[in-house]
Design a protein around this nucleic acid. Structure first.
Lengths: 107, 107
DNA sequence: ATATTCGTCAACCAAATGGTTGAATATGCA
DNA sequence: TGCATATTCAACCATTTGGTTGACGAATAT
């Protein structure tokens, strides 16, 4: 039983958290800026960041009063490998994938 | 926002459900046989199968009084592609991966 | 010095999750 | 027919989840 898979998959199951990760692909961000596009309180987003942090999917570093969030893509490796064992997927349609990411961000 | 990603990742977040999927990699199985190795009621396992089913990760076909469960690896495609966008992972250590799958089954 | 900004904490809430048990349904067997 | 097997359903329960608000501490700006 892998606690890592539990926490990583659970973290990825929430659309807000996936949107946050997609945002962080662009650049490191402060907590306040991460929260900005969402229609929920800063405290709620802060909790999401804790969950992403515990799953290892992001790291946070405090500089001054600003806490910077950085994505840690390698934390997905175990989960990604796990999934890949379950099928040989067709090649990626990258255009479709881009559109999909757009939708995720708006979602 | 993708309801599919929500349900697939949520389904994979539970170790019992991942173990079920790993079992189904070997062969299609009846509900009773799926439930056998787990220390929980048949009803509980049945619920897990419903969740896997709704996520599209398995299909179930009733023949006689037996309901057969079949893994549908392609349902992981979208989620797998999503994850892969977040990093270029090092090459897989396949021995480690085998050991990991063993542990999952025992978990 | 004081006000403002950044972020978390604590208490609370509703809804979802993962489990239980016992009854119900449907099929197969003798 | 009558019994056993396969599976789900319904009601229930404890815990977790995802959100809220208001207060708070730490850092910055005026």
């Amino acid at each position: 039983m892998s606690q890592t898979l539990d926490t990583v998959f659970a973290a990825l199951a929430d659309p807000t958290r996936r949107a946050i990760l997609t945002m962080l692909l662009e650049d490191d961000m402060a907590v306040t800026d991460v929260a900005d596009p969402f229609e929920m309180s800063l405290a709620a987003v802060s909790k999401h960041l804790v969950i992403l942090s515990k799953a290892g999917l992001i790291t946070q570093e405090k500089r001054g009063r600003v806490k910077w969030c950085k994505i840690e893509p390698n934390a997905m490796k175990e989960a990604s490998v796990w999934m890949q064992s379950f099928g040989k997927f067709e090649e990626l349609d990258m255009d479709a994938f881009e559109r999909f990411l757009e939708a995720e961000l708006e979602g």
